[in-house]
Simulated scan of single mutants.
Amino acid sequence: MFIIFNHEKLEERINAMFDNIEAFGKFMGMSKQRINSRLKSATEFTQSEIEKAAELLNIQPEEIQTYFFDVEVCRS
């Protein structure tokens, strides 16, 4: 069993507000590949990245859990 983060809602918000991941990455100071790595749960968002993304995406503190920590449990 392992846990992955589901960032689908976050990706939808990025696309709605910035049109694409690459444009969002420029504001974050991150490459498209680095953003994709986090969205696909290959690497985790850091606390400072979460704070900056929440500010850019107008995500309220009480909504951060929904966008960054929605988990899926996978059994293999």
Rank of each mutant, 00 (worst) to 15 (best):
F2L: 13
I4L: 03
I4V: 05
I4N: 12
F5G: 13
H7I: 04
K9E: 09
L10C: 07
E11D: 08
N15Q: 09
A16W: 07
A16C: 07
A16Y: 13
M17H: 10
F18N: 08
F18A: 03
F18I: 11
F18Y: 15
I21T: 06
E22S: 01
E22R: 04
F24E: 11
F24N: 08
K26C: 01
M28Y: 07
G29N: 06
M30H: 08
M30V: 05
S31Q: 09
Q33S: 10
R34S: 15
I35T: 15
L39T: 01
S41I: 06
S41A: 10
E44I: 03
T46A: 04
T46K: 13
T46D: 08
Q47D: 15
Q47T: 14
I50Y: 11
E51D: 10
E51I: 11
K52F: 01
E55W: 14
E55Q: 14
L56Q: 05
L56Y: 03
L56T: 09
N58W: 08
I59L: 06
Q60W: 13
P61I: 00
P61M: 00
E62Y: 02
I64V: 08
I64C: 07
I64G: 09
T66Q: 12
Y67C: 14
F68A: 06
F68S: 10
F68V: 09
F69D: 05
F69K: 13
F69C: 06
D70V: 07
E72T: 01
C74L: 15
C74D: 08
